[in-house]
Design a protein around this nucleic acid. Structure first.
Lengths: 149, 149
DNA sequence: CCACTTTCCCCCACTTTTCGCCACTAACTA
DNA sequence: TAGTTAGTGGCGAAAAGTGGGGGAAAGTGG
């Protein structure tokens, strides 16, 4: 399980050095193979390949005639890029994805269980502050209201 | 599985250079034989020939009395063009299809699992921005709300 | 059926991107 | 304080994307 928040810098070519603590697990479970895609909140999602493949299977089975399903498929599948840890434990973030998530230099890598999120550092801070300030603005969901943690 | 977004340029003759990473898979599974057709969203669809053939079989079996089915058939079947990777890994996009999808110079090739979509770059960006901004405007679909990814 | 025009495709050259490699610095450990 | 490991940066070779010239093939009109 991936946890925690890691402030990092991209180098001049848009490469991200995966923190050392995650490298061995990634090599063990996915042979260093990863998939990057985008998220609606303008950050990137980083999956170990096997995890992504299971997500992908779900996506492919969605209807091709329903507009919402087609859109979601297009977003996630369409932006998914395979990449691999290089010899120094880095991955190259493809330019179109970097652009989408506004990643230039300072970024944060956020562990999210079976995947990571990659945010522009400023955007991450802003998002968090806004959430804390703004309180509850999301839709309701029964499972949510039943949560104890 | 084809994934990812690839910004490309058509050359002066309307040819599209398929990114190198997809070439070998296409040669292996389809001997470089491809089928181009159009999509409702004013982009083109690019299938490996065997995949297209299975789509085609499904289409042919659709009702000939239902108007929506007839329309879908006409669109997809009627615009389908066979083409092949040339020696440099490029395909020629027939002029009528190029025109339909407004493809001139800058385009994006979007992997969608078993096929690709080819968009005018600007149209693609506009579509994506509208989707992200507008939020959920499609029909609802129970499977969608149950998705965790 | 022949000549002319247009389209298509092979080939080569140029430019940009990608990626392995190595080196430097900062932080942590012993 | 010295040794080790992690993060960062940059060089350079190799690969991929882009563009154009010219010959072959196909389509068109007389």
């Amino acid at each position: 399980m991936f946890r925690g928040i890691n402030p990092l810098s991209l180098d001049g070519k848009g490469r991200l050095a995966v923190p050392a603590k995650y490298r061995q697990p990634l090599l063990d479970t996915a042979d260093g193979q990863l998939v990057l895609t985008i998220d609606r909140d303008r950050c990137l999602l980083l999956y170990p390949l096997p995890v992504w493949e299971s997500v992908e299977r779900q996506l492919i089975q969605l209807s091709s005639t329903n507009a919402r399903a087609r859109a979601l498929k297009r977003l996630l599948l369409g932006h998914a890029e395979e990449c691999a840890l290089d010899a120094s434990g880095r991955i190259l973030l493809p330019a179109p994805l970097r652009e989408f998530a506004n990643l230039e230099k300072r970024v944060v890598l956020v562990g999210q269980g079976n995947k990571f999120e990659i945010w522009n550092e400023q955007a991450w801070n802003d998002w968090r502050e806004a959430l804390l300030r703004g309180g509850d603005d999301g839709e309701s969901l029964p499972e949510l209201d039943a949560l104890a943690f």
